[in-house]
Design a protein around this nucleic acid. Sequence first.
DNA 1: CCATAATGTAATCCAGACTTACATATTGAA
DNA 2: TTCAATATGTAAGTCTGGATTACATTATGG
Lengths: 291, 291
Amino acid sequence: MDWSNLPSLAALRAFEAAARHQNLSAAARELNVTHAAIAQHVRSLEAELSTPLLFRSGRGVALTEEGRHLAQHLSEGFEVIAEGVSALQRSKEGRPLSITVTPSFAANWLMPRIGGFWQKHPEISLSINPSVSLIDLRRDGFDMAIRFGNGQWPGVSSELLTSGEFWVVGSPKLLNTNSKIGLSDAGVYPWLIDLHMLEWRQVVEDAGLDLNTVEMTSLETNELVLSATVAGLGVSVHPRSLVEREVAFGTLVQITSLPRTDLGYHLVTLPRPLDAKERAFRKWLMVEAKT
Amino acid sequence: MDWSNLPSLAALRAFEAAARHQNLSAAARELNVTHAAIAQHVRSLEAELSTPLLFRSGRGVALTEEGRHLAQHLSEGFEVIAEGVSALQRSKEGRPLSITVTPSFAANWLMPRIGGFWQKHPEISLSINPSVSLIDLRRDGFDMAIRFGNGQWPGVSSELLTSGEFWVVGSPKLLNTNSKIGLSDAGVYPWLIDLHMLEWRQVVEDAGLDLNTVEMTSLETNELVLSATVAGLGVSVHPRSLVEREVAFGTLVQITSLPRTDLGYHLVTLPRPLDAKERAFRKWLMVEAKT
DNA sequence: CCATAATGTAATCCAGACTTACATATTGAA
DNA sequence: TTCAATATGTAAGTCTGGATTACATTATGG
């Protein structure tokens, strides 16, 4: 496409509206400008094309032969463009809000609570995609993501959902108790670790336990780690939000808590204004995360 | 058409170009702007539509699903618009240059000279429309007009072609001489006048002849007046340019000349830049008028 | 691993779009 | 015919959105 000898789009749009209404003032109202703006655009178009397009006709204007042909094309073209934009907006309306979350957060935090969101916003359908990989929101077409980390990711905005602590947990059967036993005592048990969640290592060592002295078993996912821990195969470390329900139910015992305010689950979005659905989900998430 | 929730056309065009090239810098070159301008437009579009449209992909960018659909529509729409504009320009190319002139000017000034224009510009076809009425250049689709008057017409530009004098003329047979006889002596002959050209009355009276004392015969057109004068039926007044050839040939005798610099034939155009054909015709006219 | 060629983005600048203000023109009704 | 209402025409000045500039970052290919 060669734009070099095309008049300004604003002028073409002004002329299209004027031609459609056969009335400069009506066109001006449609485009939310004054009649003078329309008149100037039309004049500049006529000068650029060296052709009269409109002439005054009583109250209003009429089209010359050339003007009628041009207006025809312009209306059609702008119509196609407007249709394209509104199709995009409509398709966005109908599509479910699409979220990607880590599997463990989905299973242990989001799923137990999501019923409340559905009750509160039955009109918003939600598509939840559990995935560990650091996906690209743009490329993969997700509206939002929930990821664990320090919130410093390039090219996206992130907002802290839950933070504060890692809890070291084990099953009451394994530990033979229902109360805290302290980090150093936990060193005697086998440690179950998730290959994909490595942030906790530094936290544990900062808290004074040398991980080289403990027996560790790697599992593929945090889900496996959690169920193995519940089954009494060892102890493990998790963000508080993932295990506080298990601890409350007594299926797990909190051995100790390791405070770290710089890490946590974040709601990650592209740096753009959120639409209505996204705002609703974000608000619900924030309220849930605070209670 | 409701433009109120349509993004800016400049942004849409920038995105369309970026999508077509899958490359912001190439789009920028096409639109003669910098890559930053394109990037900003795309960002603002994504913000306005709450949808990612492009994502970075190596050297260049790739389209998201939504982006592809939108770009499709935009390309089509802009294509239709560009086609409309270029069709107008092409149709203008092929059409003859269309001029309207007064019949007497056509017959007595333009036609004797027009062969020279055709020789000089064989590529420019010319449509000459003889008409007395004060036509509307816009409404009636003429490119240029030649009209007699003082050049003060509203809404158009006019440029003086010939001016200076009215000549009072008669046939040598009627006057029984081949040389000037003076205005007062002309009062004894019948005067032939054109119903449509009334400017000369004031000129003649200013020169000292009381028209109430002369016998006058009205004819329908200046053509009739001229041929009646040549036939010796009376004397008449014409702009010099219309009769100087007849006088040179001896078919008419110049009785006297009445200088008036404020009246003359003017080239009348709409107030806009002339295109190539128009400039060529205007230039030729001006040269002819000066010789 | 460097040279090259992209994109990303904040700060600043500027031209073109828009408004204002006033003049003129047309219509319909008193 | 005149007046009120509603148009268009256009010059002058204002202002904002689009553009440039400048610098940083990122990806590719040799």
